[in-house]
Amino acid sequence: MKRNIVIATLTAAALATGGTVAAFAAGNDAATATQRQANTGAQVAADHDDSDDDRTTVRTGNVTAAEAIAAALKHTPGTAVSADLDDDGADAWEVTVVKGDGSEYDVRVAPDSGKVLGAQRDTDDDNDADDRAELAALKGARTDAREAALAAAAKGTVTEVGLDDDKGAVTWSVDTVKDGKQGEWKVALGSGKVTQDRDDD
Rank of each mutant, 00 (worst) to 15 (best):
A71M: 13
A70Y: 10
L85Q: 12
D86C: 03
G100P: 00
A68T: 14
D87H: 11
G78M: 07
D86V: 01
W93Y: 12
L73K: 11
G78C: 05
I69R: 08
T76N: 08
G100D: 15
E94M: 07
K99E: 08
D101M: 03
G89C: 08
A66H: 08
A70E: 15
P77G: 07
G102Q: 00
G89V: 09
L73V: 04
K99A: 12
K99H: 02
E67H: 10
E67V: 08
L73Q: 13
G89E: 09
A65K: 06
T76Q: 15
D91G: 13
G89T: 08
V81N: 01
A83K: 05
L85H: 09
P77E: 05
I69P: 09
L73R: 07
V98R: 00
G78Q: 06
D87L: 12
I69Y: 12
P77Q: 07
A72D: 03
A70V: 14
T76H: 03
L85M: 13
V97N: 04
I69K: 11
T79R: 05
A68R: 14
A83W: 02
V98Q: 00
T76D: 10
E94D: 14
A72C: 04
K99N: 03
S82K: 02
E67I: 07
D101H: 03
V81W: 01
S82L: 01
V98F: 00
A90G: 11
A70G: 09
V81M: 04
T79N: 01
A83T: 09
D88I: 10
E67P: 08
E94K: 14
A65D: 06
H75K: 15
I69V: 15
H75C: 04
D84I: 03
I69E: 10
D86F: 00
K74F: 02
V97E: 04
D101N: 11
L85A: 12
A80P: 02
D87N: 14
A68K: 14
V95D: 05
A90M: 07
D91N: 15
G102W: 01
V95N: 06
T96I: 08
A72H: 04
A83R: 07
E94S: 12
G78S: 06
T96S: 13
A90S: 14
P77A: 06
V95I: 10
A65Q: 09
A92D: 06
W93C: 11
A72E: 05
L85G: 12
H75R: 12
A72S: 06
H75I: 02
A92V: 09
L85C: 11
V81A: 02
D101P: 04
S82V: 01
G78L: 09
K74N: 14
G100M: 00
G78K: 07
T96L: 02
A72I: 04
D87S: 14
P77R: 07
A72N: 00
A80G: 09
G78F: 06
S82N: 05
A68Q: 12
A66T: 13
L85P: 08
G102R: 01
T96E: 15
A70P: 09
D87G: 11
G102I: 01
A68E: 11
V97Q: 03
A66I: 11
D101S: 03
K99R: 13
D91C: 06
A92T: 06
V97R: 05
A65I: 05
L73I: 02
T96G: 01
D86K: 07
G89W: 07
D84G: 05
V97P: 05
G89H: 09
V95E: 06
V81L: 02
V98M: 00
K74I: 02
D101R: 02
T79A: 01
A71I: 10
D88C: 11
